[in-house]
Design a protein around this nucleic acid. Structure first.
Length: 236
DNA sequence: GGATCGATCGGCT
DNA sequence: GCCGATCGATCCG
């Protein structure tokens, strides 16, 4: 069955609800008539001029202008002199807010995305032949190279060819859009990454992650300390 | 496994 | 002039 495209109405929900609702949806980039796509597994909310972690804390400028515009558009910015990050603009015009897309689970155009990331040789070594069948199988237990493909805001923009020229573009248009996916079974909520400078706002638990997904960013590998055979009897 | 560091440049003070 | 909503390489234990 064909995927349902998300329409502009979807983006009118409050930012935190939108950040949660985006998990499980498919982000599609159309490039040279080809589809590059991934399932959103990690998001962060940035809300208003008061939020010191939000770029709008600096006020309305040429860069942040699109965040003050209508919801459902892309806000793409350039950081650290080399990386781009993709946000989904939220809230009605005049109120600056957005949801940062931090990680995707790969779904379509994997070899092309690996090429854009400079990982095609390494991924080919990790998954011999890169055949669709092997790729599908590798998706349940991805190796380190496969995991590095789209897990991080800069990484996914490089893989999907997203840069500032797409800032302000509608997310219901042809080059970049969303398709309806499946809501995650459980969502993990944490503080946002890389905003330690934001004073009290650094404590906001505005990061949303698909629970137990191997595709999330950072070294959040869980050293899951199963209630061990030993611990059980040791402490009374 | 984790900590640290350099790259590199646009945006804002 | 300063400093990032990051990444990947490298060093250490």
């Amino acid at each position: 069955m064909p995927a349902r495209r998300l329409d502009p109405d979807f983006f009118t929900q409050p930012t935190i609800e939108l950040a949660r609702a985006l998990l499980g949806q498919r982000l599609v980039r159309r490039l040279d008539g080809r589809r590059l796509a991934g399932i959103i597994v990690e998001t962060e909310a940035y809300i208003g001029e008061d939020d010191l972690a939000c770029h709008a804390a600096a006020g309305r400028t040429a860069r942040t202008e699109v965040m003050y515009g209508p919801p459902g558009h892309a806000y793409v910015y350039f950081v650290y002199g080399m990386h781009h990050c993709l946000n989904v603009v939220s809230e009605p015009p005049g109120y600056p807010a957005a949801v940062l897309i931090r990680a995707l689970a790969p779904s379509e155009g994997i070899p092309a995305m690996a090429r854009r990331r400079g990982l095609d040789a390494k991924l080919g070594a990790e998954i011999p032949g890169l055949t669709p069948l092997r790729l599908a199988r590798a998706t349940s237990e991805p190796g380190p190279i496969f995991r590095a493909l789209l897990s991080g805001p800069g990484r996914l923009c490089q893989a999907l060819a997203i840069d500032r020229t797409l800032s302000g573009a509608s997310l219901c248009d042809r080059e970049l859009f969303l398709e309806a996916g499946t809501a995650p079974r459980a969502i993990e909520v944490t503080t946002r990454i890389g905003v330690d400078y934001a004073g009290p706002w650094r404590e906001k638990r505005w990061r949303f992650v698909v629970a137990d997904s191997p595709w999330v960013s950072g070294a959040r590998r869980r050293a899951a300390p199963a209630p061990s055979r030993r611990a059980r009897g040791l402490t009374t």
